[in-house]
C-alpha cells in the first residue's frame, strides 16, 4: 500500500505513476456495487408475477408512511383487451444484423459445444 503523506513529500515519478493508476484500485468492488445496484433496479420476477395483484382495490400502505401507487388506467385497459396467448416479438432485436444472429449460434448443433459434450 502506498502511503499518501509520503507520496506528497517525495513527489517521485513513481508515486505519480501509482497515483495515476489509483482509479484501478477498487475496480472489482465498484463493479460488484454496480452489479448489486442493477440487481435491485431490475424488478424481481416473482414480485412482478405474484406481488401486485394482492390488493386490487384499496391502496396499500408501506410502514404506514408510503402509499403504493398503481397504474390503474393500464390495468383497466388490460381487463377487457383481447384474450390471446401469443407473445409479441421483441422488436429491438434486428435479425438482419450479424451480431444479433451470432447471439444464438450455440443454440444449434452447428455451434460451439461445451466441454465434455459432443455431437456424437
Amino acid at each position: 500500500e502506498v502511503n499518501t503523506d509520503e507520496q506528497k513529500n517525495t513527489y517521485s515519478v513513481e508515486a505519480v505513476f501509482v497515483w495515476a493508476l489509483r482509479w484501478k484500485e477498487d475496480l472489482q468492488q465498484k463493479a460488484a456495487e454496480a452489479f448489486l445496484r442493477q440487481q435491485e433496479a431490475a424488478p424481481n420476477l416473482s414480485k412482478v408475477v405474484y406481488g401486485s395483484v394482492d390488493s386490487d382495490e384499496e391502496d396499500e400502505e408501506l410502514g404506514g408512511l408510503f402509499r403504493v401507487s398503481r397504474p390503474h388506467k393500464s390495468k383497466r385497459l388490460q381487463t377487457n383487451s383481447v384474450d390471446c396467448s401469443r407473445f409479441p416479438p421483441d422488436s429491438s432485436l434486428n435479425w438482419n444484423l450479424e451480431e444479433i444472429l451470432d447471439s444464438i449460434r450455440d443454440c444449434f448443433v452447428t455451434g460451439k459445444w461445451e466441454e465434455g459434450q459432443d455431437a456424437a
Binding site: 420476477l45 412482478v48 408475477v49 390471446c84 396467448s85 407473445f87
Partner: peptide
C-alpha cells in the same frame, strides 16, 4: 414469461394455491 403466462400464474395461485419458484 409472456404477459399471458404471468396472468396464468396468478390464476393458478387463485385456483390451486400453487406458487412457483421463479
Amino acid at each position: 414469461l409472456s404477459p399471458y403466462t404471468i396472468e396464468f400464474l396468478r390464476h393458478i395461485r387463485d385456483f390451486f394455491q400453487v406458487m412457483f419458484k421463479i
